[in-house]
Simulated scan of single mutants.
Amino acid sequence: MPVYEVLTTEGTLDADKRKKLAAHIVKVHTEETGSPADFIQVIFPELPAGHSFTAGSVATPHIIRAQVRAGRTMTVRHAIIQRLHDFYSDLTGVNAMELIVAVLDVPAQWAMEGGMIMPEPTPEAEAAWFAKLEANQAG
């Protein structure tokens, strides 16, 4: 269910940087939350030059916006934000003032994956959800 969007201006990230960044996002999310990698989506929307503004002036955005199931602790949220910020800055050389990283909560009941409403992010709810998912796929 987690969806990570890395929004930039066209041509900012080449294929190699996108691949490295996607792999790192998956690594960070799985390590910090325990979520399986198979459900982590990373997309790279690009804006044409001149289609982003900051303080009324043309800008070149560097925004990582994540939508994750609500219920993560502040410690987990801050770890995800900091690790993604640091990696992106190191990978691209972007100044810290030019990068926005935001992790937004989505109530589990507002999302569906595998044809089923997502469970709350607890081990018990996730185990029951995966068991039902497997049963649905088997039969």
Score class of each variant (00 low, 15 high):
Val28Phe: 08
Ala70Met: 05
Ser35Asn: 11
Ala102Ser: 11
Gln109Val: 02
Ser89His: 12
Pro119Ile: 03
His62Glu: 08
Leu99Cys: 04
Glu32Gly: 05
Ile63Met: 05
Leu7Arg: 06
Val3Tyr: 03
Leu47Thr: 02
Ile63Gln: 04
Ile100Met: 11
Asp16Ala: 11
Val6Ile: 15
Asp90Leu: 07
Ala138Leu: 13
Arg65Gln: 15
Thr122Met: 07
Pro2Asp: 05
Ala128Ser: 14
Pro123Ile: 10
Gln82Asp: 12
Ile25Asp: 01
Glu5Lys: 11
Met97His: 11
Ile80Thr: 10
Met1Ala: 14
Thr122Arg: 06
Gly56Val: 11
Glu32Thr: 15
Val94Tyr: 02
Trp129Phe: 15
Met116Tyr: 00
Asn136Ser: 13
Phe130Pro: 01
Arg65Thr: 15
Pro36Cys: 07
Thr30Phe: 09
Val103Phe: 10
Ala135Lys: 15
Val58Cys: 09
Ser52Asp: 02
Met1Lys: 08
Thr9Met: 06
Ala96Cys: 02
Phe130Met: 09
Val68Phe: 10
Gly11Trp: 06
Ile63Asn: 08
Thr54Pro: 01
Ala111Arg: 03
Pro61Ile: 04
Pro36Thr: 10
Thr9Ser: 09
Pro61Val: 06
Gln109Asn: 07
Gly56Trp: 11
Gln137Lys: 14
Ser52Lys: 00
Asn136Met: 13
Leu99Gly: 04
Ile81Tyr: 03
Gln109Leu: 02
Ser35Trp: 14
Leu104Glu: 13
Gln109Arg: 06
Ala55Trp: 02
Asp86Met: 04
Ala79Ile: 00
Gly50Ile: 02
Ile80His: 07
Lys17Tyr: 03
Pro48Met: 06
Ser89Trp: 01
Gly34Ala: 13
Ala131Thr: 15
Trp110Val: 03
Asp105Lys: 12
Met74His: 12
Thr33Ala: 06
Leu91Tyr: 05
Tyr88Val: 12
Gly50Asp: 02
Leu7Phe: 00
Asp38Met: 14
Ile43Asn: 08
